[in-house]
Amino acid sequence: MSMMHVNTTVNGDEVEFLCDSRETLLDALRDRLGQMGAKEGCGTGDCGACSVTLDGRLVCSCLVLAAEAEGRQVGTVEGMAEDGGTLHPLQRKFIEHAALQCGICTPGILVAAKALLEQNPDPSETEIRYWLAGNLCRCTGYDKIVRAVLDAAAEMREDA
């Protein structure tokens, strides 16, 4: 089968790749573009480990075809820290609060939490929990994750 040619933008960089029509954006990010931050935990949109933004909207990259990325803006965990390596406050707070153990869900949760804080700088605990309901974590019981997001939000409000 002939491959499809896709032009897209990932974390601000223009990229292009060839893919099978059945490949997902997650497949393309990982296998075609070497961006391994998004993880496949289920492939069916139930775990959120593959969370990315598409034109600013939070989505599961396993539920987007690679071909759909044509001409669009993709944001992944690899784009969260500033050039030069300065971490996003969420990234710092996740380390500080021990909000990760195995870390496989962490990239997806960070991308999702960043999307939340961009539209709601002062979320309640309940709002955080419901926003992140599609991001499964099996290690932490979510307690320290929620605390890290609350603390990062508070810091970002102070700095704003």
Binding site: G45, D46, G48, V59, C60, A112, L132, A133, G134
Partner: peptide, 9 residues
Amino acid sequence: VGSTQVQGR
């Protein structure tokens, strides 16, 4: 319907 991520689509 689904998660925040699914709501985006």
